[in-house]
Each structure stands twice: as C-alpha cells, then as structure tokens.
Computed example of a mutant assay.
Amino acid sequence: MAVSDEVLAHALDLFAGLGPIRRGRMFSGVALYVEEDVMFAMIASSGTIYMKSDEETGARYAEAGSVPFTYTRATGTRQVTSLMSLPDSAADDPDEATEWARLSLGPARAAAEKKRAEKARKAARKAKAG
C-alpha cells in the first residue's frame, strides 16, 4: 500500500516551515529530506509520520506519546527506534510539527554524515582496487 497523495500533501504542509522538501522511497512509504540528503521524517504506508531520532531525542518523543516504527518480517516484528511517530498533538499543527522536525534534524544530519563518509570510504577502496 502506498502513501496517499492526500497524506503526502498534508505532511508537506505540516513541514513547510523547513523550506524545500525532497521525497524519496523508504520501505513501502515516503522519506522526507531537507538539505539534499538529510532524511528527517518518513511517512509509512499506514499514513503515520515517523520522525528521525536518536537516544536523546527518542526519549523526548516517547515522553510525548510517540512510538517507534515497527514492521514485520518472516523472522518476526522489528522495531526501528531511530524513527518515532510524530506526536498526536502535532498532527494538525504546523508550528508544533516544525518544532519536532527541527528536533529531528540533529539525528538526521548525523545519519546523513555517516552515510556520506561510508560512501566516500567505499569509493576510495574501489579506486584503490581498480
């Protein structure tokens, strides 16, 4: 099941305060990016918006009633604690949603930097081997 156009438009409206947002595929949902490669949120096929988190921000999300993204595989259900649901209180409040998104930018930037460094290492190994 894909993310509906209505749900995607609502999420883009919620986070409009962040500036230009790029979309990409993630699981069976849609990833939301700022600053080219900084994935700060994901919309699951269920329509739930999940925000990028780390240990510190995840605790703040949990205090606000957020739950981690979960999915089921043949080996069982898995939790992705680096993606926490947008608090219900922010679901229709662009100002509050943008505050949560800004909180998620720290972990999102750190994850993007880690991916960039990993790609650079792979490219360097490939160039050295080739």
Rank of each mutant, 00 (worst) to 15 (best):
A2E: 11
A2C: 06
V3S: 03
S4P: 10
E6T: 14
V7M: 02
L8G: 07
L8N: 05
L8A: 06
A9P: 06
A9G: 12
H10E: 00
A11T: 11
L12T: 07
L14K: 01
F15S: 04
A16D: 07
G17F: 00
L18M: 01
L18V: 02
L18C: 00
G19R: 08
G19T: 10
P20H: 10
P20G: 04
I21N: 01
I21S: 04
R22E: 09
R23A: 07
R23Q: 15
R23M: 11
G24H: 02
R25E: 09
M26Y: 12
F27L: 15
S28Y: 11
S28A: 12
G29S: 04
G29L: 03
G29P: 08
V30M: 14
A31R: 14
L32D: 00
Y33R: 03
Y33C: 03
V34W: 05
E36M: 10
V38A: 12
F40I: 00
F40L: 01
I43C: 05
I43A: 00
A44F: 08
A44S: 14
S45D: 14
S46K: 00
S46W: 01
G47C: 11
I49Q: 06
Y50Q: 00
M51R: 02
M51A: 03
K52S: 11
S53V: 07
S53N: 10
E56L: 13
E56I: 13
G58L: 05
A59S: 11
R60L: 13
R60T: 04
Y61S: 03
A62F: 09
E63D: 13
E63G: 09
A64L: 08
A64E: 04
G65Q: 04
S66F: 02
V67W: 10
P68G: 06
F69P: 06
T70G: 08
T70Q: 12
T70R: 12
Y71N: 04
Y71D: 02
T72P: 07
T72R: 15
T72V: 14
A74N: 10
A74Q: 13
A74L: 14
T75F: 13
T77E: 05
T77P: 05
Q79P: 13
Q79L: 15
V80C: 13
T81C: 11
T81E: 14
S82Q: 14
L83T: 07
M84K: 11
L86Y: 03
D88R: 15
D92N: 15
D92R: 15
D92Y: 12
D92A: 15
P94R: 11
D95K: 12
D95P: 04
E96P: 03
E96K: 14
E96M: 14
A97D: 05
T98W: 05
E99F: 13
W100P: 03
W100I: 01
A101C: 08
A101K: 05
R102I: 05
S104C: 12
G106N: 10
P107D: 10
R109G: 02
A110T: 05
A111T: 07
A112E: 08
A112I: 06
E113A: 15
A117C: 05
E118W: 13
E118I: 10
K119P: 01
K119V: 01
A120P: 01
R121S: 06
K122V: 03
R125M: 13
R125Y: 08
K126G: 01
A127H: 09
A127W: 02
A129V: 09
G130Y: 11
